[in-house]
Design a protein around this nucleic acid. Structure first.
Lengths: 196, 196
DNA sequence: TGAAAAAGTTAAACTAGATTAACTTTTTTT
DNA sequence: AAAAAAAGTTAATCTAGTTTAACTTTTTCA
């Protein structure tokens, strides 16, 4: 793979572990670069998730449709973040989630078929992925804690201060979905906040 | 460490990776065994979490106290499961959570100070922990999904069928706390279910 | 540039679950 | 075995957030 396109990924990895030139080139031979257009799906519910995707540019939403056909957004992924249905990827079972691009999006993709081989050839990357997933787990637990102990308004304020960039790029009704509330109620919260 | 006491851990690890005798003995030299009595704390909110604990026998609850002093249970850990405040352990920062024994409990403890050394000496264990944490992350995401899309009654039914052993061992008000509902409402749910 | 589609707002009626408080049952301690 | 503490129940009242529906604003695209 073209090293230039992967530079943001290499920079990101080198924040956590330091790769030699050889290790970098082994890495590059194991990944692929791909562009998607706004609206396109990277993964659809029911398919097998074959890739862990690192976002170079753009933005995706990971969501599922419940029995009533209602959309629930699990996460947004912007630059320097990951997109995948981990449950599906790890066990190669049908995905619970859809991943769709909210903007034109450039990705680096790690394939299930080659990632174990990559871990063996470059053990530092196994360390890197262990640390990434630890962070993801911690973030997920913190979200559960917020769900338990914050009101909708408090959760919105937290979201806004934690991801100010995301709020600009994404329609409000999707933020409501991410927070687990209706768009009408988020609208009410915002008008309340405007008066304070 | 005494190999007999660690046997359940070795069996558990060998389900995921296969260790040689040398690797097993390196592992044993890096872990400690400890017993706690019912009611004792393994970790207190504000302290640094220095150990990832594997439960040999017994049961713990991981919880935090919110600003109103209300207890919220994040997880229960029984035989063959883990107990730790990962956020605190990874960054060695003050813990958000308390971990308390609900029964007399035997643990194998992995210390922050030696675990990185262990990963280097036995890379298979880095793989093992990567897989464990992947599973924990997936479970955490699934819990978020359930929070979004299930009613309290549905969540209770799910808990009951997923952890039938836990329900027997733990007071009902703690299960309510784990589900994020009041003990009164869980009581109502159970009386409704009894009529069906 | 103008029409249609998408996104956001407002407000009334409704509901799942919380709160409060009095009470019963079970478990623990002496 | 009695007393006290812990756990669980029931029911009335309350509230955060949902639902429904009509409306306005913004964005998209022919």
């Amino acid at each position: 793979m073209d090293i230039q396109k992967a530079q943001p990924l290499l920079d990101y990895i080198n924040k956590h572990v330091s790769l030699t030139k050889e290790e970098e080139s082994t890495l590059l031979s194991h990944i692929t670069f791909r562009k998607y257009l706004k609206g396109q799906y990277i993964l659809q519910q029911g398919d097998i998730c074959r890739y862990e995707c690192y976002v170079i540019s753009g933005c995706t939403k990971t969501f599922y449709l419940d029995d009533d056909g209602q959309e629930h957004i699990i996460m947004f992924s912007i630059e320097d973040w990951w997109a995948a249905d981990m449950g599906s990827f790890i066990d190669q079972t049908p995905a619970d989630f859809n991943i769709q691009c909210l903007e034109n999006t450039e990705l680096v993709m790690f394939s299930y078929d080659t990632i174990e081989d990559l871990y063996i050839k470059v053990p530092k990357l196994e360390r890197f992925f262990r640390r990434i997933i630890e962070k993801a787990f911690i973030a997920s637990q913190k979200r559960i804690v917020r769900n338990f102990s914050l009101t909708a308004k408090e959760q919105y304020l937290h979201f806004r201060q934690q991801y100010p960039e995301i709020e600009q790029r994404i329609p409000q009704y999707m933020i409501a979905s991410y927070l687990g509330i209706t768009k009408e109620f988020l609208s009410k919260i915002k008008s309340q906040l405007a008066l304070e």
